[in-house]
């Protein structure tokens, strides 16, 4: 019983600390000075450097999804609806969520480990004593970069995934690219794209803030750095699913599903 109470207390403490850390982000984000150069560097590292992995994942996702869907649709004689199903699945759900999970694995862990290592080697303290606000320089720039880059990466991943779907259809059948694009554009509407894109901003924010929180508060030397990286991925992945659940409920209530 006491163990359960301690766990609940630890959970509430952690939730409170993450909330304060997030509040601190908005406080610092709105105050000058703006670390534009570091922000652009982070955009390059977070966005451009993740492109090959995200692109490859998106391509495989589209290809495999098409190949898995085909037998079921053939059984019901609606094989022609394959582009519709693939495009809706990728754009509304699989594209944003899978891209965000891959992004959490790559970027969340790297931010957690980098800031954790900076914390235990006193680099964050060194920044502070040199009169630089380390939160603004390290955290605000990274969280903004992940928040803005994930939606862009998701759009690219979706596009590559749809191309993967086109190739998947042509493995067993024949369909021209023009017809495929036409089918996709006829199926996907504004209310499919907008909520799916909006939620990726929240996914990106969650990956950035959790990675930074875990790294910035890293303790206990190198062991703590590993733990920060690991828990950054686990917690941000969990948050991605929770945000997804909330967004789906909201879009459902708004009649957008």
């Amino acid at each position: 019983m006491k163990g359960k109470e301690l766990k609940s207390e630890a959970f509430l403490n952690e939730t409170g600390a993450i909330s304060r850390f997030t509040g601190w982000f908005f406080h610092e984000f709105l105050r000058p000075r703006f670390e534009l150069r570091e922000f652009l560097r982070q955009c390059f590292l977070v966005g451009y450097k993740s492109l090959p992995l995200i692109g490859l994942t998106g391509f495989i996702m589209g290809l495999v999804l098409t190949m898995q869907l085909r037998p079921t649709l053939v059984a019901y004689g609606v094989e022609a609806r394959l582009p519709d199903m693939v495009s809706l699945s990728i754009i509304r759900e699989i594209g944003p969520v899978i891209t965000a999970l891959i992004f959490a694995g790559k970027i969340g862990s790297s931010i957690g480990a980098e800031l954790g290592s900076m914390r235990v080697t006193e680099q964050i303290d060194a920044m502070e004593v040199s009169g630089t606000n380390p939160y603004k320089y390290l955290v605000v720039t990274r969280v903004l970069a992940t928040t803005l880059m994930l939606p862009i990466l998701t759009i690219l991943s979706d596009a590559i995934g749809l191309y993967g779907g086109f190739l998947g259809i042509n493995i067993r059948g024949v369909m021209s690219l023009d017809l495929y694009i036409n089918e996709v554009l006829n199926t996907v509407v504004f209310s499919d794209v907008v909520p799916a894109t909006i939620k990726t901003f929240f996914f990106g924010f969650a990956v950035g803030i959790i990675g930074c929180y875990k790294g910035y508060n890293s303790k206990k030397g190198t062991e703590g750095v590993g733990r920060s990286a690991n828990s950054a991925v686990v917690l941000s992945s969990l948050l991605i699913f929770i945000i997804d659940l909330v967004v789906v409920q909201i879009t459902d209530l708004l009649g957008l599903n």
């Binding site: 290592s117 900076m118 080697t121 006193e122 680099q123 303290d125 060194a126 920044m127 004593v129």
Partner: peptide, 10 residues
């Protein structure tokens, strides 16, 4: 401030 661990930005 000179840190014991040097704290150079790696």
């Amino acid at each position: 401030f000179l840190f014991q661990s040097n704290a150079l930005y790696d």
